[in-house]
Design a protein around this nucleic acid. Structure first.
Length: 485
RNA sequence: GGCUCCAUCGUCUAUCGGUUAGGACGCGACCCUUUCAAGGUCGAGAGACGGGUUCGAUUCCCGUUGGAGCUACCA
C-alpha cells in the first residue's frame, strides 16, 4: 500500500542544501511542493540539508529563507536542519548493519580512487565488488580490535527496483546496475541517501517531489526504506530547467537566483506564475494566473516529463501582465520603497498623497514590464524641473524660436483654463492647433519634452494633470526661457 | 563507456486514436494613436527519422538518431 492510498494527510517537503542562493530551479521545485500541499490540504515542510559542512553556509540558509519568503512559499512546522539528526542517521545505518542489510568495508578511500582511475583508463565502468570487502571472522575481529576505520555499505539485493513515478509513470532499475553504495562514511557521518531517507521517514513524508536529477537516487532510497521496514512514499520527478542552449541552467546563463529577479523589479506572483508554467500546464490556454488560481488549478496530472527552457522574455511579459492587473494599492506598497530608494520621494510622503501616487502608477504600470521601469518613468512626476534629453531636443525642438513661440502660446492657453482637467486641456490645445493651422502633434510633442524632458511618456494630458498646474506652467516657462537663451 | 529519463512552431505549451495540429512569448505587417506602451486584426513558424498495431496515428509499441541527468566515503 502506498502512502497516497492509505488516505493519510499529504506531507511534502523542499530540501535544499545551503551551498548557494535560491536557484530558480529550486524555487520551482519548492513551488510545486507548496502547490501540492495547498491544493490537497497537506503540509509543506522545509528541510535544510546542511550535512556538507565544507560547502554549507549560514548565509546561503538565509538566502533560501529570504527567497521563499519573498515568493510567499510559506512552510508549515519548524525548519528541519539535517545536521541536527546525524545521530539518528548513524543509528539507522547501524540498524541496517546489525540486520545484515549492510556490511563493513575496510577498503581505504585511496584504494577505491586508484581502482576507479584504473577502470576509467581502460574505458570500463567501475563498480564496487562486494567480494572485496569479504573478511574471515578472524580478520574482521582483528581489524575491529585494531580500531581500523571502515565505511558501511548497503548490500543491494538481487532483482529490480521500480516505482510508479507521479510524472513519469513506471521507472525501473535493474539492481545489478546499482553498486553497494556507502551509507555511513568511515568518519561516522551519513551519506546523502541515508540522511534523506532517515529524515523523510522521521518527518512522515508521503510524497517526495524533486528534480529529475534525483531519479537515479530513487532506487537506492527505495531499497533503504524497505530495509528499514518503512513505508515507501510516492515519488514524483519534475523536469529540469535548462538555459537557452539546452543545458542545465547555471550561472553562465545569466541571472539564475530568484534574488536577481527580485532586484530587477519582478513581482513575486509573476515569478511564481512563470515558474509554474515551466513543466506544468493547467490543461487549457490559461496563462496569466494569480496565486490562488494556481492553487485552484494545480494538479499532478498537468506535470510534464520534458525539460523546459528558461525564457526571460516571456518572464518579463508575464510580469507586465501582473503589473497591469495587480490591485493598485498592492502595487503602491511595492513601488513606494523603490521610489524612496531612488531618492525621488519618501514612503511617508507617498502615503500622504496616496490617491495621487496611485494615479501616477495607473499611468505607468500599463507601459512597464518591470517595477524598475515604473520608478524610472515616474521621475518627471516628482522632480521640480526636468533635464532635457539631447535626443528629445534635437528631435522635437529643432527650430528653437518657433518651438519657444508655440510653447509660450501653449502655456498661455493652459493658464487660461478654468479647470485643470484633461478634457478642457485637450479642447484648448486642439483649438490652438487649429488656429495656427498645425496638427495637434506639433503642440503635444514639444510640450512633452518641456514637461518630461523625454520623447516618451504617458498621454500628455495625464502628465499635465499629475505634474499639476503650477509645476506644469513653470516647466513650460522654463523650456521657453531655455529655448530663447 | 554504463544506467535512466526525454522528444509538437526558435521558446513555453493544448491534443488523453479521427483537428484545416489550437494558444502564448518572441518576430513581421496593419489598425488604434500626441509619443511610448497597452489593446485589436493578420502573417511566417512544429509532430526528429524508420518500422509496426489500427479502418485511422502527433497520440500506443519497437528501433534509430538527437538531447539531458546520474555514474564520489558531494548533495
Amino acid at each position: 500500500m502506498t502512502a497516497a492510498s492509505s488516505g493519510k494527510r499529504p506531507r511534502v517537503r523542499f530540501a535544499p542544501s545551503p551551498t548557494g542562493f535560491l536557484h530558480v530551479g529550486g524555487a520551482r521545485t519548492a513551488l510545486f511542493n507548496w502547490l501540492y500541499a495547498r491544493k490537497y490540504d497537506g503540509d509543506f515542510l522545509l528541510r535544510i540539508e546542511d550535512t556538507d559542512r565544507q560547502r554549507s553556509t549560514d548565509e546561503s540558509t538565509r538566502a533560501i529563507f529570504e527567497g521563499l519568503e519573498w515568493l510567499g512559499l510559506s512552510w508549515d512546522e519548524e525548519v528541519v536542519y539535517q545536521g541536527a539528526n546525524v545521530a539518528r542517521h548513524y543509528a539507522d545505518a547501524h540498524r541496517l548493519l546489525d540486520a545484515g542489510a549492510a556490511y563493513r568495508d575496510f577498503t581505504p578511500a585511496s584504494e577505491l580512487e586508484r581502482l576507479r582511475a584504473e577502470a576509467e583508463a581502460r574505458g570500463d565502468a567501475f563498480k564496487f565488488d562486494r567480494t572485496m570487502a569479504e573478511l574471515s571472522p578472524e580478520a574482521l575481529a582483528e581489524k575491529l580490535a585494531n580500531n581500523e576505520p571502515y565505511a558501511i555499505r548497503f548490500r543491494v539485493p538481487e532483482g529490480t527496483t521500480e516505482w510508479p513515478d507521479l510524472v513519469h509513470g513506471r521507472i525501473a532499475f535493474p539492481n545489478k546496475d546499482i553498486e553497494d553504495f556507502i551509507i555511513l562514511r568511515s568518519d561516522g557521518t551519513p551519506v546523502y541517501n541515508m540522511a534523506v531517507v532517515s529524515d523523510d521517514i522521521a518527518m512522515g513524508i508521503t510524497l517526495v517531489m524533486r528534480g529529475d536529477d534525483h531519479i537515479s537516487n530513487t532506487p537506492k532510497q527505495i531499497l533503504l526504506y524497505r530495509a528499514l521496514g518503512a513505508e515507501v512514499p510516492q515519488f514524483g520527478h519534475v523536469p529540469m530547467i535548462h538555459g537557452t542552449d539546452g543545458k542545465k541552467l547555471s550561472k553562465r546563463h545569466g541571472a539564475t537566483a530568484v534574488g536577481d529577479y527580485q532586484h530587477q523589479g519582478l513581482l513575486p506572483q509573476a515569478m511564481l506564475n512563470f515558474l509554474a508554467l515551466l513543466g506544468w500546464s493547467p490543461g487549457d490556454d490559461t496563462e496569466v494566473m494569480t496565486v490562488p488560481e494556481l492553487i485552484e488549478r494545480f494538479s499532478v496530472h498537468g506535470l510534464h516529463a520534458k525539460a523546459a527552457v528558461f525564457d526571460t522574455k516571456k518572464l518579463e511579459w508575464m510580469n507586465g501582465q501582473h503589473l497591469a492587473q495587480i490591485p493598485i494599492d498592492q502595487l503602491a506598497a511595492i513601488v513606494a520603497p523603490l521610489v524612496e530608494r531612488a531618492g525621488l520621494s519618501s514612503v511617508a510622503d507617498l502615503q500622504a498623497r496616496h490617491d495621487w501616487f496611485c494615479g501616477v502608477l495607473e499611468l505607468l504600470r500599463i507601459r512597464a514590464r518591470l517595477t524598475d521601469e515604473i520608478v524610472a518613468q515616474s521621475r518627471p512626476f516628482f522632480v521640480e524641473s526636468v533635464e532635457y534629453d539631447p535626443e528629445a531636443v534635437s528631435k522635437q525642438w529643432r527650430d528653437a524660436a518657433a518651438t519657444a513661440d508655440i510653447l509660450d502660446a501653449t502655456r498661455e492657453r493652459l493658464a487660461s483654463l478654468e479647470t485643470w482637467e484633461p478634457a478642457a486641456m485637450e479642447e484648448g490645445l486642439r483649438k490652438l492647433a487649429e488656429e495656427r493651422g498645425i496638427s495637434g502633434g506639433k503642440i503635444f510633442q514639444p510640450l512633452r519634452v518641456a514637461l518630461t524632458g523625454l520623447t516618451v511618456s504617458p498621454g500628455i494630458f495625464d502628465v499635465l494633470l499629475y505634474v499639476g498646474r503650477e509645476r506644469s506652467l513653470a516647466r513650460i516657462a522654463e523650456a521657453v526661457a531655455y529655448l530663447r537663451q
